[in-house]
Design a protein around this nucleic acid. Sequence first.
DNA 1: GAGCACTGC
Length: 780
Amino acid sequence: MAASGSNAGQPAKRRKKQQPANAITIGGRTISLEAYLDPTPKPAKITATPAEPAPAAQKPEDPAPTERREKTTTTSRPEKHGRRGGPAPARNTEDAGLLKTRRALPIWQHRSEIQAALRKPGNNVVVLAGETGSGKSTQVPQFLYQESWCRRQTVKLPGSRDELAVGGTIAITQPRRVAATTLAHRVSREAGTPLGRGKPDGLVGYSVRFDHQVPRGTKIKFLTEGTLLQELLRDPYLRQYSAIIVDEIHERSLDVDLLVGFLKQILTGDLSGRGGVPLKVIIMSATADVDAIRGFFKDLPAKDNEDEDTDHVQVLRIKGRQYPVEVVHEPRPVPDIQDALLKRIFKIHLEEPLPGDILAFLTGQEEIESAQKLIEEYATTTASNVPKIKVCPLYGQLSTAGQREAFLPVKTAFTRKIVLATNIAETSVTVPGVRYVVDCGKAKVKKYRPRLGMESLLASVISKSSALQRTGRAGREGPGKCFRLYTDSTFETFQDSDLPEILRNDVLGAVLTMKARGIQDVLAFPLMDTPGTESIEKALLHLHYLGALTDDGAITPAGETMARFPIPAPFGAVMLAAARPEFDCVMEAIDIISCITSGEDIFLQLQSEEAQEEVGELRREIQRREGDVMTYLTTMQRYTAENADRVGWCRQRRINARNMRQALNIRKQLRAMSLKEKLISETPPQDPQPFTPVDPERADVILKCFMRGFAMKTAMLAPDGSYATIQGKHAVAIHPASVLHGQKKEAIMFLEHVFTNKNYAKKVSAIRANWIVEAMESRY
DNA sequence: GAGCACTGC
């Protein structure tokens, strides 16, 4: 196991470079470059650790109606925290109402149990398994912040005479921004110090990207996992916190896996970095199976007089509140999912009473659109005594207005709403009014193939946990029914849970995060699931190429800068290259990177021919012959030059206005960081700046600069007119969404590489073949 | 000339 927080105890193995020319030694490991540049297609070796299925929860849990109506007007100062235990006293009748609601939550029964579990010295990890509606996210931090171990302490660090404050705040992490902010608002009301303008003091705060509200006296702070990971860069011992509550661990985001790894390192360390003040860790999961979590934390060293055998991880289970859902399987496998889906929906519609909307889970936009058409056709044929049908598609790429329909009650009487959704409705949003769920048993999943350096996005079988989650969607407002379009024995063949993200994603960013926090040997870093050695080696090599690691695998100053930037590492490398005098294009790089990292593609799909015609001309004004990267630049430049009606400007061109606003936020953040990191020397001019097109020579410079991050994502035109990738010589096609679709260029660089129906290059730019060699050879 | 789940710094 790795040593304390910074791994400082482990001397880096420094070897003389004696490897063959086609190999490189990183972090004491010799890695063959052949495997990197010329991958041989072998099946990827990835194993999952199965966990027991259980319904997963949704965040934020819906407040009870009474609670939702509550308007707390109290603005009392945070009270002194000398008392132990009990909740903040009710200050008026509204507070009394809130308290009553809180007391009715299932978690309330476990209040003293939770407090006692954490009071025990040496018992620093508690796992809470609580179902949806148990109230754990809102109540647990409130149970704990007045505990004596939660007081801020003044300590002296070993070897230092300076006094330092440690602890005093509880952090609670969430995978998503909305969850963190809405929970903070609710808990702040319950605590009697609601968040808001002109309220400098309060017990509860939150911190998410672009939005921080941390009042003076904050004792409970909600954060996204990513934000806490950034804090960990500046404060490896998390000194401001007495406890970290990790919520929604069952979702197993990449960030949460890294986070618990760092927490375990702090717990296993000698606490000298915290002046001896222990850190309490509370792990909360919505699934009943917590063996993996318990196993992960189990081997903490025994403290004080305790036996070696003592289990330091206490597990508490809390019942939730969910209505019963009857599950109906198909008696035998269905030959045609689409057909079975339609039949099932019609059957529900004819046999089940109103009110009760139907939520059907499908795999993608295409399936949803075709099902919608067929259901609407059917609806015209039903008798007049049969309820009418309103079909609402629901998927990520759908416009906000289109999505809204699915959440509103139907306006017409005697009508049933049928929502056809992707797994957007599984965790991200809750559709009200649903009593019947239809589950096709599949979902599209993105998976990284380290050997090929590309991703695949294919429909595959869901997990038991996912199926249960879908089932649960029928029981949120009353007893419901869930119809599965597969047999119960098929269900039994499902994996218990989905592959955690860390086994599905490129671990480039994760490895950089570890290296930036002083982890020498990333293979020894404690993780609940460890990615294959090949994935990690690939990431090390990639980081080495990007200039983030030395030949010995130590992080470089450039790598540290990349880790601080809130963008993927290859873009960080582009930023650093852009600051070099031969490129000198930081501002342009920021504009492009902001557009790309602001969400899904800012260019909305043009579906109908009329739309193509209508928007085509205006789109052509921003398109560049050099390809997508330069098109993003022009888009941002034209957008910021437009000062009157930016939303209208976006609408005319079918550009996602929300993402453009987000891109502006990112641009602002990257500009400020570039100034701080000295990538630029002076404050950039204010918007709006007049638009002047970038000349072709300058465009070449910008594209060459992007090659410093993406040299391995290039392809050459073959004699037969197809493109062959430099890495692996695979055929790749330019995606239809690219401005270069259908064009033949000498060579291309692409920022994304995804296999769907075939191998696609996305975000494509035309380059010169000799640039590839140039970029491959260049090292900083 | 094809079509893509979600999230985060």
